[in-house]
Write a protein that binds this DNA or RNA. Sequence first.
DNA 1: TGAAAGTTTGCAGGCTCTGCAAGATCCTCG
DNA 2: CGAGGATCTTGCAGAGCCTGCAAACTTTCA
Lengths: 215, 215
Amino acid sequence: MTEGEPPLGLRERKKRETRAKLVKIAIRLAAERGLENVTVDDIAAEAGVSARTFFNYFPAKEDVILHADPDPIGQTRRIAAALLAAPAGLSPVRAVAHAMRPYIDEVDDDRDQWLARITIIERDPALMVRMFATHKESERILVDAVAERTGLDASGDFYPMLLFKVVGGAMQAATQRWHELGGSVRLAELFDAAIETIAAGLPVPVGTAVLEGKT
Amino acid sequence: MTEGEPPLGLRERKKRETRAKLVKIAIRLAAERGLENVTVDDIAAEAGVSARTFFNYFPAKEDVILHADPDPIGQTRRIAAALLAAPAGLSPVRAVAHAMRPYIDEVDDDRDQWLARITIIERDPALMVRMFATHKESERILVDAVAERTGLDASGDFYPMLLFKVVGGAMQAATQRWHELGGSVRLAELFDAAIETIAAGLPVPVGTAVLEGKT
DNA sequence: TGAAAGTTTGCAGGCTCTGCAAGATCCTCG
DNA sequence: CGAGGATCTTGCAGAGCCTGCAAACTTTCA
């Protein structure tokens, strides 16, 4: 799946190093004072490159915080493929959740990095905006996949888009709650709970540990 | 409900006029060439005011397109109140939908303005999210209201936030589809269909006119 | 080793947005 | 009606983001 770790020359190594350094510094500074109080110059200077170079790596300042994944489209395609490959018995909602699972696990595995990121994002709405702005293309791919799996028409039917947006909402809610809990439970657990609640038609919860307080 | 239409001096009249002119011009220009190809100077010049004045009316360029409502917090509070006042028999999802209903009807009543707005927003996705991922403040108010209605704890329980985000997703999906259909059906109808589907646990649709294609 | 390919950087410049202070306009009250 | 005060508008300066462009530099590869 992961494409390559072949030769990997000096040039490529340096680039990754610089990129990683920019991300790391940016996250640290933004965690300290909020992204809006950190200029591109600050980040670039501390990384020992020019501000112009910063923009060779990231199209916008916000992306240094958000854009951990260098290839979001590829990731989306993989989710779409997983969706189509999911067990036939799964309902659409559960199938989508199942397809997203590996990426949610990744968040749990990189817990601290993600918690830091989310803290920064919560503090600066501009990041929230940019986070979803990129996703036009991804959205289409996933909606198409849902349509294919359900035998509906991506552009003519409402259902695929609705499902996509609803699961997106669940994802957001789970992420936010996870952050509130300081990552003390797995994101996957919260997400699963959200999906089950949705699959049940969002009834008022009664005695569900994860949905209610820690108890 | 609408607070006042008392005296209304010249000054206030002029301000509203300027504001309205800016909005109108901005929407027209953005519809023609996309918001990113319209500068604040363009808008201000055509409205006969300085660019500096533009920023006295709108905190950011995007707000001239989105910020139709001068008091989003007040509107949010009204939705929250309506949520608590909704018939006791309604399930949480339906109660929220019920509370939002008046504002959805407003969109239908101002159909063309909104279609134009959404066209612009669709072309510049950053605006889409900003539209719903409104202010943290609004979110808190609504989540609190959901918590109160369901007898849960807004900060300790997951359910209120989840419900809020899911309904937000439904709203987005409905809006997008409404725009695709060129407003040929009422947004309210699409929204209701979305809510019913969610209340049913998002089953694959069968023979539902609104959810499937026009047939 | 030397050309080809890829990177970094400074520079110029466009654009968004903010504070500030001067000037124009409206409103209120005597 | 005519101050005097309140409110708006505007120009200006300046910080910041971001983009081409071309020169200088580094890595790669034949």
